[in-house]
């Protein structure tokens, strides 16, 4: 039983890391109806910018601020040079534009900062917490716990921002109805630039955590792929959905990895490792059949 909980907790905490990436998708999808395929590339770019600034001699805090500034500029540029040209296009056309954008960023990032794999040290060790190891005999990484704390703070901050500030209200208004937002004088362009900057910030946070765990490398762009099942589960338009979806994906893939192979091996014989690599996608597929709008997504009903 204790082992079960250890796996469960490990899974939940790693799920939080998926949630962080999914959050960036949700923000942009809510505000502009675009599924931003470039979110993974943005995670890579943000982490690389931090490492690049540090190599140039900046301390961590300064590198973070600089990277945030770069991500903000990237957000503004994306609005100005990509989205504004594509106003009133179909969602699929916008989606294609973000695929182009992701290739652009994936090329730009190593051009600016170099493409070798680099470590990123944010001063949190990835080791089991001694207290929990001693008293419960469970391995819980302090880094995972830190990541979870960051994610909770980020989500709480975003929720307060959306719910209680004027800009947040404007953001929700734009997400709800573009035409109505325009009529009350909310400048769409500013709001979109702002949303992309916030998504850049979320990418930065995700990039820091993923980068310091796995090293800053091109593979960071693939985190976006892990975010997709999270989004399908949680719903594309829900911030809490991204969190809960991440937790479910994280926990279920780890549990599946541990408990399903022995059963399969008994029935069919042979080796069934690596289930966690495809399990989330199968789960997402099943979910699409049962509840396509996700756990927290808005159900879309068209009147005929």
């Amino acid at each position: 039983m204790q082992f079960f909980f250890e796996v469960l907790i490990g899974g939940l905490l790693s799920g939080i890391m998926y949630s962080l990436v999914a959050l960036g998708f949700v923000l942009i999808f809510k505000a502009s109806g675009v599924l931003n395929f470039a979110q993974g590339a943005m995670v890579y770019f943000a982490a690389l910018s931090v490492v690049g600034c540090m190599e140039k001699g900046a301390p961590l805090w300064l590198a973070l601020i600089l990277a945030f500034a770069i991500m903000t500029l990237l957000g503004i540029a994306t609005e100005k040079f990509v989205l504004r040209k594509m106003v009133n296009q179909t969602p699929i056309a916008l989606f294609m534009a973000t695929i182009g954008l992701s290739f652009f960023i994936e090329g730009l990032a190593p051009m600016l900062w170099g493409n070798e794999v680099r470590p990123l040290d944010i001063g949190i060790v990835d080791e089991p917490i001694p207290y929990i190891l001693d008293s419960y005999n469970m391995v819980v990484s302090s880094f995972d716990l830190f990541a979870a704390g960051v994610a909770v703070a980020l989500v709480a901050g975003l929720a307060l921002f959306f719910q209680y500030t004027r800009v947040g209200r404007a953001l929700r208004a734009v997400a709800d109805d573009h035409q109505a937002a325009l009529s009350i004088g909310i400048p769409l362009q500013h709001i979109w630039a702002l949303v992309w900057a916030v998504a850049g910030f979320v990418a930065l946070v995700a990039g820091m955590l993923w980068g310091s765990r796995n090293g800053v490398q091109y593979a960071l762009t693939f985190t976006a792929l892990k975010a997709l099942p999270v989004l399908i589960l949680g719903g594309f338009t829900s911030v809490p959905g991204a969190i809960v979806g991440g937790l479910i994906i994280g926990a279920s893939e780890k549990l599946a990895e541990i408990y399903i192979p022995p059963v399969l091996a008994e029935v069919f014989g042979g080796n069934f490792g690596g289930i966690e690599n495809w399990f989330p996608y199968v789960l997402a597929l099943l979910f699409l059949l049962v509840r396509p709008e996700g756990l927290f997504g808005e159900r879309h009903i068209d009147r005929v």
Binding site: R172, D176, A180, A181, S183
Partner: peptide
Amino acid sequence: FQNIALFKGM
């Protein structure tokens, strides 16, 4: 607007 344009979720 002719077809109501409100923020329906708010």
